[in-house]
Write a protein that binds this DNA or RNA. Sequence first.
DNA 1: AGACTTATGCGTATTGCATACACAAATATA
DNA 2: TATATTTGTGTATGCAATACGCATAAGTCT
Lengths: 228, 228
Amino acid sequence: MKQNIKVAVDAIVFGYSHNQLMVLLIRRKYGELKGQWALPGGFVKDDEGLDTAVVRELQEEAGISVNFLEQLYTFGDQVDRDPRFRVISVAYFALVNPSRLVLKADTDADDAQWFPIQGLPALAFDHADIIRMAVARLQSKLQYQPVGFDLLPEQFLFSDLEQLYATILDQAIDRRNFRKKILSLGVVEETTQKVQQQSGRPAMLFRFNKRKYQKLQKEGISFEIKFA
Amino acid sequence: MKQNIKVAVDAIVFGYSHNQLMVLLIRRKYGELKGQWALPGGFVKDDEGLDTAVVRELQEEAGISVNFLEQLYTFGDQVDRDPRFRVISVAYFALVNPSRLVLKADTDADDAQWFPIQGLPALAFDHADIIRMAVARLQSKLQYQPVGFDLLPEQFLFSDLEQLYATILDQAIDRRNFRKKILSLGVVEETTQKVQQQSGRPAMLFRFNKRKYQKLQKEGISFEIKFA
DNA sequence: AGACTTATGCGTATTGCATACACAAATATA
DNA sequence: TATATTTGTGTATGCAATACGCATAAGTCT
C-alpha cells in the first residue's frame, strides 16, 4: 500500500473581546512560508487521534485550551493546497471565553496573536477560505444553538450578549425582542449584582444556566418543523 | 517528515425504493476482512482530490454516479479503527434517485448491494457508526433543505413525497398540512398528467422546479431567526 | 436644582405560520 | 348501486415572531 499524503489538523479559534470577533493566528517559524501568518495546527502523530492532535497543537503553539471544539471540515480537494507536498487538513472550530483568552508565552508571545475578523493579515495556504467557512458556521450556529456562553465571561450584561449577536451576525437587533427570546429559552439567569457603566441606568449582571445551556446545546434551539 | 497514516474516503449512498430507505454496501473481496460488508470507498491517490476519489470509488465499486454528494465527517479519533494500520476516513454523504439506482455489473453484481436501513448486515470497521451519523444528517437535512428531489424520480406523486418524509423521519405526517407547507415553498409543480393507482381517486403527477429547488438548497428552507 | 442625555428594563398590539381537524371528489370493487 | 379507497381542499385556533412605546435609573450639563 503506497500512499504519500500527510494528515494535518488546523484550528480556527474564535474569541470575543472589545466587541469584536477575534481569530487566533500563528506566525510560521520555519520553512518556505516562514514569517507568514497561519492557523494554529500541525501534523497528526501516528499514535494520536485527530481530536487529541488539535488539543495538543493548541497547547504547544499558543498555550491555550478551549471551551468548545468541534470538527469543521476536511480540506483536501486541491492537491496543491500546500506547496511543499500533498497535505489534507482536518479543520476544527473552537471557541474560547475571555478567561482563557490570554496567550501564554510558552512560545514567544510574538508568534501567537489575536486578530479581529475584519483585519486579518495575508494568510498561508488556503487558510483564508477555511476561516471564511468557520465564520459561516459560527453565524449559523448562533441561530440554532446557544453558543454565546463559550465566548462570554462568567457574568455579563445583557447588552454584551446582544452586542455579540449583532457583531457576529452583522445585523441590527431589537433589544426588547432579543431579550424576550433569550429569556424564554431559560438559559440565562439574573444575578443579584448591578454594574454601573459610563452613564445611564445601571445594568444587572447575568450568567448562564449551565444545565439548561448544555441541554439546549445538544438538542438545538426549539425549532423543528412538525408536519404532524 | 515521518508520518504513517493512510487516507481513505467512504461514501454513504442513500436510495429510496419501495417506500424504504436503502444504503449501498460492498462486500470486501480481499484481506483480513474478506467477505464482510462495508461502505463503498477506498484509499485516496496521491494526485487526486478527496472529492474525486469518492466519485471514482463509487464508479469502480458499484458503477454508480450520484445526484448529491457532500462531505459528512472525518473519522480518525480512534487510532485502531482499522485493524491493519492507521487509517483516517473522510466520509461522504450521497443521494441517488431511482433512475440511477440500478447497480451496473462492472464488478460482480453480487459485490455491491442495496440494504434497507433497518436490515443492515454486520459491518466492517466503524461503518455502523458512520451510517448512524449519516442517517441523522439526512433526517436533519430533510428539515431545512428540500432534499427529496435527489431521492425521487423526475415525476412523482405527492403521496410519494409524503411517504418519503414519513419513512425517513419515522413519524406520522398530516397530509393536508404537509401539502400546504411544501406547496408554499414553491419547489414542486403540478404536471398535467394523472396516474391511476390501485383504487381510489387518480393522482396528479408532480415534478420539482429545479431552479427554485437549487436556490432553496443553497439558502436553506425559510427559517431564520430575525431579532430585528 | 433642574433639564437633558444615555442606557436599561418591561409591556402590548399585530400578524403570520404551524397545528388541528372535516368533508368533498374520483376512481375501483363487490 | 353501494362501499371502500385514495386524492384533494378549506377553515378555525393558538402560539410565537415582529413592531413599537414608554417608564426607570443613573450621569452630565447649565
